[in-house]
Amino acid sequence: MTVTDRRAYFGHPESWLDLEWGGLDAVDLVAPDIFQCSYRDRFDGLGRVCRAYGRTCPAVR
Protein backbone atom coordinates (compact mmCIF):
# COMPACT_ATOMS: atom_id res chain seq x y z
CA MET A 1 0.00 0.00 0.00
CA THR A 2 1.22 3.47 -0.88
CA VAL A 3 -0.33 6.63 0.60
CA THR A 4 0.44 10.13 -0.70
CA ASP A 5 -1.20 13.53 -0.29
CA ARG A 6 -3.27 12.78 -3.42
CA ARG A 7 -4.23 9.09 -3.23
CA ALA A 8 -3.96 5.65 -1.70
CA TYR A 9 -2.89 2.75 -3.89
CA PHE A 10 -3.33 -0.90 -2.89
CA GLY A 11 -1.07 -2.84 -5.26
CA HIS A 12 -2.25 -6.43 -4.85
CA PRO A 13 -1.57 -8.36 -8.10
CA GLU A 14 -5.06 -9.91 -8.22
CA SER A 15 -7.17 -7.13 -6.71
CA TRP A 16 -5.58 -3.66 -6.94
CA LEU A 17 -7.29 -0.41 -6.01
CA ASP A 18 -6.32 3.21 -6.72
CA LEU A 19 -8.26 5.75 -4.61
CA GLU A 20 -7.92 9.49 -5.17
CA TRP A 21 -8.79 11.43 -2.01
CA GLY A 22 -11.12 13.74 -3.95
CA GLY A 23 -13.24 10.75 -5.00
CA LEU A 24 -13.78 9.41 -1.50
CA ASP A 25 -17.04 9.81 0.41
CA ALA A 26 -15.43 8.93 3.76
CA VAL A 27 -12.18 7.71 5.34
CA ASP A 28 -12.29 6.28 8.85
CA LEU A 29 -10.37 4.20 11.35
CA VAL A 30 -13.30 1.93 12.33
CA ALA A 31 -11.23 -0.11 14.82
CA PRO A 32 -7.62 0.10 16.04
CA ASP A 33 -6.51 -2.17 13.18
CA ILE A 34 -9.13 -1.47 10.45
CA PHE A 35 -8.80 1.45 7.99
CA GLN A 36 -11.94 1.96 5.87
CA CYS A 37 -12.73 4.07 2.78
CA SER A 38 -16.08 4.50 1.06
CA TYR A 39 -16.46 5.83 -2.49
CA ARG A 40 -18.61 5.71 -5.63
CA ASP A 41 -17.50 3.38 -8.40
CA ARG A 42 -16.75 5.50 -11.46
CA PHE A 43 -18.08 2.83 -13.84
CA ASP A 44 -21.48 1.99 -12.32
CA GLY A 45 -21.97 4.77 -9.71
CA LEU A 46 -22.64 2.29 -6.91
CA GLY A 47 -21.25 2.82 -3.42
CA ARG A 48 -18.24 0.70 -2.46
CA VAL A 49 -16.29 0.11 0.76
CA CYS A 50 -12.62 -0.81 0.98
CA ARG A 51 -11.09 -2.08 4.24
CA ALA A 52 -7.47 -2.75 5.17
CA TYR A 53 -7.01 -5.08 8.16
CA GLY A 54 -4.26 -5.73 10.68
CA ARG A 55 -0.72 -5.23 9.43
CA THR A 56 -2.00 -3.89 6.09
CA CYS A 57 -3.63 -1.01 7.96
CA PRO A 58 -1.47 2.14 7.77
CA ALA A 59 -2.47 3.18 11.31
CA VAL A 60 -0.74 0.17 12.92
CA ARG A 61 2.63 0.42 11.16
Rank of each mutant, 00 (worst) to 15 (best):
L29W: 04
D25Q: 14
R7G: 01
R7F: 14
C57S: 15
F10P: 00
L29P: 02
Y39D: 06
T2F: 05
G11M: 09
R6G: 06
T4M: 04
Y39H: 01
D5T: 05
G11F: 06
C50W: 05
Q36P: 01
Y53Q: 11
Y53M: 12
Q36K: 08
A31P: 10
T2P: 06
G11S: 15
G11N: 14
D28S: 12
D28L: 05
P58M: 07
C37N: 03
G23R: 00
R48M: 14
L46K: 13
H12A: 15
D5R: 09
E20R: 13
A26N: 14
M1G: 01
F35A: 13
P13M: 11
C57G: 09
T2L: 08
W21I: 03
V49F: 02
S15A: 14
Y53D: 14
E20H: 13
G54Y: 14
R6M: 10
A31Y: 07
P32T: 04
A59E: 11
A8R: 02
G54V: 11
V60Y: 09
R42M: 04
D25Y: 03
V3S: 08
L46D: 11
L46R: 13
L19M: 03
R55H: 08
D33V: 09
M1F: 02
R40A: 10
V49R: 08
D5F: 05
V30S: 12
G47H: 14
G11Y: 10
